[in-house]
């Protein structure tokens, strides 16, 4: 294999990994866009999604597609409950209070799963037994792509297009955008902002849950602390794309995945996390609004 083919292979690896970051990053960015809260429990919601998917497939023996939808639904309900219990009472307090509450929820969730399932990594049943066989297809220059990567990228793309549709074309989406622009005015215009915030949490978390199941299928393993690092990386992706911006989160995720994979490709795999978080620091120093972010004037 020559340089081009390796480049293409690593690019595909990167896009596949980046799609999972993007799915998580969307939840961060949507919640931040609407209530200016960095929801640090979001990575844990992704982890819970993966476990719900695993439980549905292995214990309840349902079809993987139903498990996928079930995990999304569960994450929606869970995130809405979390919002009501842990964030809504703090809506009018200092932003730091809600942030600490989010960190608390994150610790509770990961420890709860650790308690229930144990610290051992759990095997996600191989997709070959439930959906299709893993095959590789030749691309140009001898590079290959496998069916799992195609699945991951296509499902992520469908979910992101669906999200764009909801936000841009539906009434709920319009209300979301209005609430994110100006919370108080939106309320004055007759929008039930609490309900819109719940919708935002629900949609963002459904994407994270979907991401969890996809990653379970893709890597074949789920673990109670699997939300931690991808959660941080997705946060980086959201900042890179401009926190609060939906297209920004998508591109930020994919760019981060590709950069990480290129780091591995040139032989610096030990530094992949360092480089990802190095990017976070650089973006915050040089362009705090990110690639797609707009300058926000602080409303006091």
């Amino acid at each position: 294999m020559d340089f081009t083919s390796n480049f293409i292979v690593q690019l595909i690896n990167g896009i596949a990994l980046g799609s999972t970051y993007a799915l998580i990053a969307l939840g961060y960015t949507m919640v931040y866009g609407i209530i200016m809260l960095i929801n640090f429990a979001h990575g844990e919601i992704y982890m819970v999604g993966a476990f719900v998917g695993l439980a549905l497939v292995t214990i309840f023996k349902v079809h993987i597609i139903i498990a996928f939808l079930g995990a999304m639904l569960f994450c929606m309900l869970m995130a809405v409950s979390i919002e009501i219990i842990a964030y809504r009472p703090l809506r009018r307090s200092k932003r730091l209070a809600a942030l600490i509450s989010a960190i608390g929820i994150s610790i509770i969730l990961s420890n709860l799963v650790n308690l229930l399932v144990g610290p051992k990594p759990q095997t996600f049943p191989s997709i070959e037994k439930i959906l299709f066989e893993i095959k590789s297809f030749d691309l140009i220059a001898g590079a290959q792509i496998n069916t799992l990567q195609i699945l991951l990228i296509i499902v992520s793309a469908i979910l992101m297009i669906g999200l764009q549709y909801i936000v841009k074309r539906t009434k709920v989406g319009k209300a979301m955008r209005a609430t994110s622009q100006d919370y108080d005015t939106a309320a004055l215009m007759g929008i039930n902002v609490n309900r819109i915030i719940s919708y935002t949490f629900a949609i963002g978390s459904a994407l994270a849950g979907a991401g969890g199941v996809l990653v379970g299928i893709y890597f074949g393993v789920v673990k109670y602390n699997m939300g931690m690092l991808p959660g941080m990386k997705a946060f980086t992706a959201a900042v890179l794309g401009g926190i609060g911006s939906i297209p920004g989160a998508m591109f930020g995720g994919i760019i981060l995945g590709v950069i990480e994979m290129m780091t591995v490709a040139i032989g610096f795999s030990s530094y992949r996390d360092a480089i990802a978080f190095g990017i976070l620091i650089l973006v915050l120093l040089i362009k705090p609004t990110g690639l797609f972010g707009k300058q926000i004037f602080k409303k006091v």
Binding site: L17, A265, S269, S270
Partner: peptide, 20 residues
Amino acid sequence: EESVQDGDTDFSGQVSNIKK
């Protein structure tokens, strides 16, 4: 020679390098 970290789940990049 490739390096990974305990706790990683994504090894696609390293494995692609080994394949090459």
